[in-house]
Design a protein around this nucleic acid. Sequence first.
DNA 1: AGTCATTGCACCATCGATTGTGCAAATAAG
DNA 2: CTTATTTGCACAATCGATGGTGCAATGACT
Lengths: 358, 358
Amino acid sequence: MANSGKKKATIYDLSVLSGSSPSTVSAVLNGTWRKRRIKESTAELIRSLAETHQYTANRQARGLRSSRSGLVGLLLPVHDNRYFSSLAQTFEAHVRSKGQCPIVVSASRDPEEERKTAETLISYSIDELFICGATDPDGVHEVCEAAGLKHINIDLPGTKVSSVISDNFEGGRLLTEAIIRHFPAGRPLEPNDLYLFGGRNDHASHERIRGFRAVKKELLGGDPDECIQPTGYAPNNARKAFEAFYARHGKLPRGLFVNSSINFEGLLRFMAEHPHDNFTDLVVGCYDYDPFASFLPFPVIMIRQNVEGMIAKAFEVIEQPRAAPRIHLVEPELVPPRTALTGPLDALKDIDLPRRKT
Amino acid sequence: MANSGKKKATIYDLSVLSGSSPSTVSAVLNGTWRKRRIKESTAELIRSLAETHQYTANRQARGLRSSRSGLVGLLLPVHDNRYFSSLAQTFEAHVRSKGQCPIVVSASRDPEEERKTAETLISYSIDELFICGATDPDGVHEVCEAAGLKHINIDLPGTKVSSVISDNFEGGRLLTEAIIRHFPAGRPLEPNDLYLFGGRNDHASHERIRGFRAVKKELLGGDPDECIQPTGYAPNNARKAFEAFYARHGKLPRGLFVNSSINFEGLLRFMAEHPHDNFTDLVVGCYDYDPFASFLPFPVIMIRQNVEGMIAKAFEVIEQPRAAPRIHLVEPELVPPRTALTGPLDALKDIDLPRRKT
DNA sequence: AGTCATTGCACCATCGATTGTGCAAATAAG
DNA sequence: CTTATTTGCACAATCGATGGTGCAATGACT
């Protein structure tokens, strides 16, 4: 009711209204007033004025003075993918619970854009930065370091500061083994029947491939190089790779290890163009979990990275005094076909009927 | 090289180094220097100093002075869902292209949290706010209005300010009709065979239901009330509703209109618990598109909302001087089963091999 | 040489909150 | 009643960038 005008109330407005000084108002409203020996009644008065005038602090001013902002950044490769968006969702909840404001930005896996985005965030004096899945984590590190900003890597490790990542080697092993064991003993998989598609020259892909090859050698007794097809992450490049294989062999490999759900979309595109092929006798293992993918008409075994665990660990590590860079591995989980897992969405209440407080 | 120390350079540092005043430095670096008749050579000097010292403006200071921040907010219900995350992705690209910084936050469909989140964003002096899928858009409106903040509704309309939303009635019609026509003439659908699950008491659900009922009446000659089951958006509530139907009838309806891909996850959960039921003779229509869902083992017809179109329209409308609140409808698109559409991810280059600029 | 216009820039207040310091008034101690 | 202590708060500098105003130096022109 007070002022439905345009301008927001400031501590100066309240100082006039309450008859005390701006510094007193400030102290009362930011909680340091006991330390400043402000009388309870004065504080009470100011608090009630703040209430009726809907005072909220101007955080730019506060941030300018204190060179903190209350903003915590998450730098993502992309938004629209269930893995990264659930990271964002979980990250948000953590930041909120600390009374800070999450700010989630994507940088398209472009090293230059990653650095520029970090610089932009820094210019807003963000308090911490979580660097997730960066193509060039160390480049971002330098930018952060120059600004004295606390930061940490997630999902893809850097060398200059600690990282929290999935145990991609173990995940790769688990997934590869599950694919192989999914085939009946009667028609077992040959080494040449199991291909890996997707991913690129990053730590996660390397580790997964390492796990993939290790298990193949161990269980299938062979591990031909041509079975590794790192196509990058773009769905269309993956599609082309499947298309090329299909053109040569007239079919897909019986077993597919797909490096990410984004690459999996490339497989879907391929399938859309081959509507009459039923792809029976096909088993797909996909790194990253997507509930819909899990129910596709062929067996899809997925790896769910422990998003909650990684985020929690990252917050734990970033709060600690900085030590020598270390890589913290978080174990991922194997998800059998046709599995609908709960996720961060389940934490939400289903609220109806907006109440209007006229 | 310059200073790898901790503090960032300010215009004062550059002013000392260049021998000119802070205001001159400021003018040079923010582009207003011609207006201020700064000599070209002075500008040149300052620019080169800024370069070598890696100057970047402190945006909190700038924002404080100019009461703008360069931040543009997007308030989302949730992140981890392909519809909302592709909205985020598209929104980001638009904001970036205007040289501003996107800030995407979710508020869990909680009216209280929506308002508080808006207030927080306002306290950072964001320049504009896009309110997407809010449970209580008018509540958020009031908060924005009190702060004199430009804002607009997306996805769910408000009454106090313009909105850009999908044509949910038409989308509902399209989808319902497609479901019905997907059944062979030999075994046509009865009115009681086609159910709608999910959604709640919001504008989008109402419109979709209206379209659903209209088409049912028109094509099936009947539209029983019990076929409408608004379960809210929580996946588990949808699951329970399917479970309940199944308990009563021993099967699912032959035709299902699922109100959102989040509700669809509830269907998956249901299916996971009935592994031996093949759900042949089932056709699902789902509002919202998910590439993986499109390839499920039963026919899934989806509606893709025109995310790019909505975002573009919203930017267009928000830039215009505010007029009487209007609802702008954007037509959604019907997506046949087994369709892999491209999305915002396809705009990204697939960059490899990070270059390090030691 | 004197007047006037132009060029080139410095000065200073300002945005709103924070925080170290100082100082009256109230209370306690002697 | 005086001195010492505590209480309660005001003052003013500060964070970094912006933009209005003013003023000296230079050049143009009579």
